[in-house]
């Protein structure tokens, strides 16, 4: 066989959708950015396959950050739902994609042994969750809105409120980590990390919009955040193009 099948290949990554590796305004990137050009590979089975996940691997509260670390009460802060769709670049839903999220609590403090920020830990909040998308690429989780916090880049740099995402699709090349921000946050415009995104369009794509239609009355607000992963070529599309090309040659 000639691996991979044409229907499994992914569109070439458009690197103009992503930040450069070397971005001095985000100082930590200076010594951690490769200087040499990456080698471009045509995809093989190693790139078009990826781990397949089973709902049985996840626990019933894994997507409920309000309850999944609650010890003797509820975590403090604004209750929100975050939901949206994971599609590929051609608009197809990514089914059964693993979505993992992590964040600080309402005080801007991470439950992590290396975080020493003065903001206080919440005994009832862990700050991580995970879920699989459904057949429409839809995901949803419930959490506490994270707070902003200062960080050592310049002396008065603050991270806007954000939630980290890691996404796994059908192929290894679709793996993506990113961060979701909240509409209206005044820290967005001065964030050196968000600022490395290559364009206004790409920055807008990282900002979740308040979704009043999905509010839970007298309980929680909601934010909508959609993600686009690498597009996968379709057999139909492929055949169509080849036939058209052959037609032109005749």
């Amino acid at each position: 066989m000639r691996a991979p099948q044409a229907d499994a290949e992914f569109l070439m990554r458009d690197t103009t959708s992503h930040p450069a590796a070397y971005t001095p305004q985000y100082k930590t990137s200076v010594l951690r950015s490769p200087r040499l050009a990456p080698i471009s590979l045509q995809q093989s089975l190693s790139e078009v396959t990826a781990p397949v996940f089973d709902a049985a691997e996840l626990g019933p509260l894994d997507n409920d950050l309000i309850l999944n670390y609650a010890k003797d009460g509820m975590p403090i802060g604004e209750r929100i739902i975050v939901h949206g769709y994971v599609h590929d670049q051609l608009g197809r839903p990514l089914k059964n994609a693993l979505v993992e999220v992590w964040q600080c609590n309402a005080s801007g403090r991470y439950r992590h042994k290396k975080d020493t920020y003065i903001g206080t830990l919440d005994p009832n909040f862990g700050g991580c969750g995970r879920m699989l998308t459904d057949e429409n690429g839809y995901y949803a989780y419930r959490t506490i809105k994270p707070g902003p916090y200062p960080w050592r880049n310049r002396v008065n740099d603050w991270r806007p409120a954000h939630i980290h995402y890691a996404l796994s699709g059908d192929g290894w090349v679709q793996r993506l980590v990113t961060q979701m921000y909240f509409e209206g946050d005044p820290l967005i415009r001065s964030c050196p990390i968000l600022g490395v995104a290559p364009s206004e369009e790409q920055i807008r794509g990282l900002i979740a919009l308040q979704d009043t239609g999905a509010f839970v009355q007298l309980d929680s607000r909601a934010y909508r955040f959609d993600v686009v992963l690498r597009g996968q070529r379709a057999t139909l599309f492929e055949n169509h193009v080849q036939q058209a090309a052959e037609g032109e040659r005749r």
């Binding site: 992590w102 975080d115 980290h164 890691a166």
Partner: peptide, 28 residues
């Protein structure tokens, strides 16, 4: 053909989400 969502750094606390046991707590 839509643009892929922009990547952002995993940050210093990547363990919380992807390896909470390494971050120092037990949740999953």
């Amino acid at each position: 053909v839509r643009r892929e969502t922009a990547s952002q750094t995993a940050g210093p606390y990547v363990h919380i989400g992807l390896a909470p046991d390494a971050a120092g707590f037990d949740i999953f």
